[in-house]
Design a protein around this nucleic acid. Structure first.
Lengths: 225, 225
DNA sequence: ACGTCCGTTCAGCGCAGGTTCAGGACCCGT
DNA sequence: ACGGGTCCTGAACCTGCGCTGAACGGACGT
């Protein structure tokens, strides 16, 4: 059984590596999101242990990216938080299970085996908000029965908004999720893309899915406007 | 175990850093609220030691901001005062524990470990006071079934009042929490915003959620008026 | 080489919403 | 009754946010 461990806490990663090898698994380790993503792409694993908070690209995006690329290797997400939201979030991204830090090692092994046994997910998740639908794996979007063609940036921005539907997300959050954690350009780019999305999703249908909350950010209405 | 220490007293911060590292922890240090907030956002810690009184942004707002952004890293608040208000205030903000200066180092370590072990807090539900409801994540407010649209300032002021429902809060406290702890403008701004809130929340419903306690401050009635 | 598509930057504009201010109402002590 | 202080009120002012259209430049295909 081949396992990839992605965690930036070296000591934890190291002890996981040793522990899992003691369980008879073949373990690869990556210490940040970029490496993790790269290794997951290049190799075939039976499961991936993925920390949510990572330097470079966070676990959330690593998982989402893999899924969007059609890679359905089982993912066990590690998270330092235990809020209900994070659970939903993790699963919505395409993680198959999650574990809250701190966790006991035997539990991790059990969950990991279960997730790997269950095999890769059969069905990709489709995000919905009213009559707005978005399929991350197929990279397709619909408003009702009409398919909407979006560019790459537009798509990942809408995906992010839909994962947070109903909640206000700040411009900063959007930048970190859709662009990069250390994006240093003009934040106005977010406004520009909101505009693009509105032109494609709202204007032709006389709807208002994306609301702007002045001084706070944007909110995708959970009923699609 | 990764810990972030935010304290502007360099000597104390330094000795905490050394002491905690001697306990086997990985310690990062920030000397003001702005840096602290930034580091808490950028990294993942098992716990944060946060001084209440800070230059830049005070500890109260650092914690509140993190929570509003969905960051539930355990926070141990340090305060130089030992007044009842500060305890309530600290915990209401989303701090998990507090410690009054001066404190003994072993006690700090013990509390810190306890707070980290207990893990991050659960995400709070919406704030309620009678038929007044406020959802920090969605940035929405209702009186009964009617949704009330508030501006950014109005919203954060009402959020503050609701976190302290039933308690009298002074104008000074409001200024420090909603504006800045070094706000130097006309304190009358608080009265102006109380007025705005009353116009939106009370007047149309013939209610009186926000009471003024002459010479002391304001109180949000815990039953919404 | 050229055209097209996308991502990004930029400057101008309109206005929501924040802040200030002055006058009036009210409360309280003397 | 009077005066001082606190709070309320309405309006005016003005900053900065978000919106918009256009232009630039790189990647890519033809």
């Amino acid at each position: 059984m081949r396992v990839l461990v992605v965690d930036d806490e070296r000591r934890l990663a190291r002890s996981l590596e040793l522990g899992l090898e003691a369980e008879g698994m073949a373990v690869d380790v990556a210490h940040d999101g970029t490496d993790g993503l790269w290794m997951a792409r290049e190799n075939t694993y039976d499961a991936i242990v993925l920390d949510l908070m990572l330097p470079g690209i966070n676990g959330y995006r690593v998982c989402a990216t893999l899924r969007e690329e059609g890679n359905w290797t089982p993912v066990l997400m590690l998270t330092a938080k235990d809020g209900e939201w994070d659970q939903v979030e993790g699963l919505d991204t395409g993680a198959d299970d999650y574990l809250t830090k701190p966790f006991s090692f035997p539990v991790l092994v059990a969950r990991l085996r279960a997730v790997a046994r269950r095999g890769a997910r059969e069905r990709p998740t489709v995000l919905e908000a009213g009559d707005l639908r978005l399929d991350p794996a197929a990279r397709r979007t619909w408003r009702g029965d009409d398919e909407i063609t979006l560019t790459s940036r537009e798509f990942s921005m809408l995906a992010f908004l839909m994962r947070h539907k109903g909640d206000v997300v700040s411009k900063r959050q959007v930048l970190e999720a859709v662009w990069d954690d250390d994006f240093e350009g003009d934040p106005n780019i977010v406004e520009v893309y909101v505009r693009h999305l509105r032109n494609k999703l709202d204007r032709p249908y006389d709807r208002a899915a994306i609301q702007t909350i002045r001084g706070a950010g944007y909110r995708l209405s959970s009923d699609g406007g």
